[in-house]
């Protein structure tokens, strides 16, 4: 086996990947992600068939970003906080005292896993579109397919990383879930209501919008620092320093 695959980080990534699916709660979350994805595909295809119109695959894929944006952060939160919640850190931090290697492995495992699941759902969506094109009167267009895939990928990537960052800073499953839900639903709206501040610099969606659609660099960087880098830094510091009692 090559050295980089048997090193401490690679070993930790394999362990963390396995932990994402080896408990009932993790499997339910995965199932939820798949079910929401399938529902989006079925709804989009059903509506298009009913109206006898055009099914744009790129729009379908953008729709799939929704389950990715919701479930990926939850998966990340569960991965980062579960060890503390169940005191599993007492086993894993003893076997790998370099705690940041384990935290880093969690980021990598969640991101890879969520991306792989989303890729599978996207592939299924394209297959559904191909079948509909062949067996119905529906017109299926593939224009902007790459853009749609990129949009879904960004949603999953940013959702995973920001979810893991917030969870690592808060080190509490319920608190992290509440913060991430507020962040992804009402936080940007509330920030938009505050007068006399450059809202795009502060809103969490600025960075994801920049990645998926382009835009100004500075507000995107500011958004990434506030919602990802700062929580990730705080989380790394807390994980490294916190006593396990």
């Amino acid at each position: 086996m090559p050295a980089f695959l048997s090193g401490p980080l690679a070993v930790a990534v394999r362990v963390e990947s396995r932990k994402l699916v080896d408990t009932r709660s993790a499997r339910w979350l995965l199932l939820a992600m798949i079910l929401v994805g399938l529902t989006v595909i079925a709804l989009a295809a059903g509506l298009a068939v009913e109206r006898g119109g055009v099914l744009e695959v790129s729009l379908l894929l953008m729709g799939l970003a929704l389950p990715g944006a919701i479930v990926a952060p939850l998966l990340a939160i569960l991965s980062v906080t579960s060890d503390w919640q169940h005191k599993d850190v007492m086993t894993f931090y003893v076997l790998q005292p370099r705690r940041l290697a384990i935290l880093g492995a969690k980021y990598i495992a969640v991101t890879l896993f969520a991306t792989a699941v989303m890729a599978a759902i996207c592939l299924l969506a394209v297959l559904v579109a191909v079948v509909l094109a062949g067996f119905s009167s529906l017109e299926v267009t593939y224009a902007g397919l790459g853009q749609g895939l990129w949009y879904a990928a960004c949603a999953v990537l940013i959702g995973s990383i920001s979810g893991a960052a917030v969870a690592s800073a808060l080190m509490s499953t319920p608190l992290a879930v509440v913060v991430v839900l507020i962040q992804s639903t009402v936080a940007d709206l509330l920030i938009g209501l505050v007068p006399n501040i450059p809202t795009s610099y502060v809103q969490s969606s600025t960075f994801s919008n920049f990645l998926s659609e382009g835009g100004e660099v500075l507000p995107a960087l500011s958004s990434a620092v506030i919602w990802i880098l700062v929580p990730a830094g705080v989380g790394a510091w807390r994980h490294r320093r916190r006593d396990v009692n």
């Binding site: 362990v15 396995r18 932990k19 080896d22 408990t23 009932r24 709660s25 579960s82 169940h86 005191k87 599993d88 850190v89 007492m90 086993t91 894993f92």
Partner: peptide, 14 residues
Amino acid sequence: AHHPGRSVRETVTL
């Protein structure tokens, strides 16, 4: 200090 939802074998395997 072990996840209650994991099996014995899985816990030791990790």
